[in-house]
Amino acid sequence: MLADARLIAGKDLRIELRSKVGIGQMVPFAVLVLVLFGLALDPDRGVLTRATPGLYWIAVLFSALLAVQRSFAVESAPGVAEALRLSGIDPAGYFLGKFAAVAAQLVVLQLVLVAGVVVLYGADLAGPLLLVATAVAATVAIASAGTLYGVLAAGLRVRDTLVPLLLLPALAPVLLGATRASEAALDGGIGDGWGWCGLLATFGVLYVGFGLLFFGTLLEET
């Protein structure tokens, strides 16, 4: 399973490095979202500062949609989906590989976005440990849920619109938890930040578990 996961993740990241389609669209899009929020809210700097965690995670979430869609778009080349079924690759390994590749891209995106909120919004990165833990837990949750819903819509002509419709409501708890945990970290007081972070981690573990168990069935049926 792990060998198959490495194979799939390596292939997806190699495609991304060669084509730069995902990162070339995802990062500029996320930065643009930050800039537009900044333009809209800049007259009231206090609102912008208070809203920084929510705006950051909304930008991550919207950009994650692009990463998930791209991840499954590469599998829609003629004959590839069928060749994958024939390859004998373990479905759980396939899920883990896709998940890992999406997560890796989200990590790169967040490094850029963190710099963006510091420069554009003047965010003060207090509570770095909680911030990193929140980012890791939220990335696992977003990438695992995205991979599951991505394969659900993969074989459909309407996948480009269906993925956001399925994924955004499913990730609403992640947006809430990540925003609350990040707020607590940026306040420096920590407060109940670790509780929200724990919720995120639970969410991530659940989706990874669902993926490992049911991805094969979803692959066969879509």
């Binding site: 292939k11 190699r14 495609i15 060669r18 084509s19 389609v21 590469v74 080349a77 003629p78 004959g79 590839v80 069928e82 060749a83």
Partner: peptide, 10 residues
């Protein structure tokens, strides 16, 4: 098969 099953970017 009729379709080549190749990744276009690789």
């Amino acid at each position: 098969a009729h379709d080549d099953g190749l990744y276009a970017d690789l």
